[in-house]
């Protein structure tokens, strides 16, 4: 009877599980399989099992190491620092901003978010490029101009990703802040806490779980950003903004080296896994103090 009860309780999970197994787990298993083969897109008749060759090739290739470094820079700068801090700042400020300002700011920030990646990419190319607005202002200020996409490509795409992705953190934090009981914050004010003290000692600690969850989600999203970087730099110039998704795509679809490309995608999954474990450990420590 108990077993039947447990099964019944799990019933609402079924639709999700069916979809996830059919359309994600299946293809992923196939992906894992092909990472250990020399499978090619060109449809050559024989696909050989090559063991760990693809991974050995990756870990001995300078291009791979470089792309891992760029992936981590991109993720830390644009997600963990940029989107997270700016999103929290916006959510906090919005609580005490005037209604008109709140509406205006959220419309603009979310407007940047809902623009398709391709368009966002082109906006930033237009902004940072040699004839772009930024250089126009620099000329106006009498400062030297440069092609920002050429001199600092990884910072350029990071900036674009902060611009585009902050709305997510802002929405999550706004929803979480709306659930913080007013009484507790007001009690802190009565006890003489200033705004900064109230934020650090009362509000932020109550949002710990939301912050951890949000950090994880934006980290994973940012790790696999493709369209934005592809539109802006295609990984260049000379691979200086080549993050892992771009590198994997290039190997699999442009060089038709499907086996190697999927091996790279697996490494990307692994990096996401490492971040996830760190985050889950933090949450677990929280649950059992």
């Amino acid at each position: 009877m108990a077993a039947a009860g447990t099964l019944l309780r799990g019933l609402p999970l079924v639709p999700s599980v069916v979809l996830l197994v059919a359309f994600l787990a299946g293809p992923i298993l196939y992906c894992i399989y092909s990472a250990f083969t020399d499978m090619a897109l060109t449809g050559s008749s024989s696909t050989e099992f090559v063991g760990f060759d693809n991974f050995v090739r990756a870990f001995t290739s300078p291009a791979f190491g470089q792309s891992v470094v760029y992936t981590v820079i991109f993720t830390v700068v644009s997600a963990i620092i940029g989107q997270n801090v700016l999103g929290m700042l916006l959510a906090l400020l919005m609580r005490s901003g005037a209604k008109v300002v709140r509406a205006l700011v959220s419309a603009i920030v979310i407007g940047a978010w809902v623009l398709p990646e391709v368009v966002a990419g082109y906006l930033w190319v237009a902004f940072l490029g040699p004839d772009g607005s930024l250089n126009g202002w620099l000329i106006g200020l009498g400062l030297p101009t440069q092609n920002w996409l050429f001199t600092t490509p990884i910072l350029a795409v990071s900036l674009a990703n902060i611009w585009r992705g902050t709305a997510f953190s802002m929405l999550v934090y706004s929803a979480a802040l709306s659930e913080v009981p007013k009484e507790i914050e007001e009690a802190a004010v009565v006890d003489g806490a200033g705004p900064w003290r109230k934020l650090v000692s009362v509000t932020l600690p109550m949002l710990r779980r939301t912050i951890a969850t949000n950090l994880m989600l934006i980290t994973l999203q940012t790790l696999s950003v493709f369209g934005l970087i592809w539109t802006m730099t295609k990984g260049g110039p000379s691979d200086r903004s080549m993050t892992l998704p771009i590198y994997a795509y290039q190997q699999a679809f442009q060089f038709s080296d499907l086996g190697y490309g999927t091996a790279l995608a697996l490494v990307l999954l692994l990096i996401g896994g490492v971040f996830s474990v760190v985050y889950l450990r933090a949450l677990r420590l929280e649950e059992n103090p």
Binding site: L24, P27, I28, Y30, C31, L217, T219, L220, Q221, L223, S224, F226, P245, A248, Y249, A252, G261, T262, A265, L266, L268, L269, G272, F275, S276
Partner: peptide
């Protein structure tokens, strides 16, 4: 959630 869809 972090799965690069391009890969699969």
């Amino acid at each position: 959630t972090g799965l690069p869809i391009t890969a699969i």
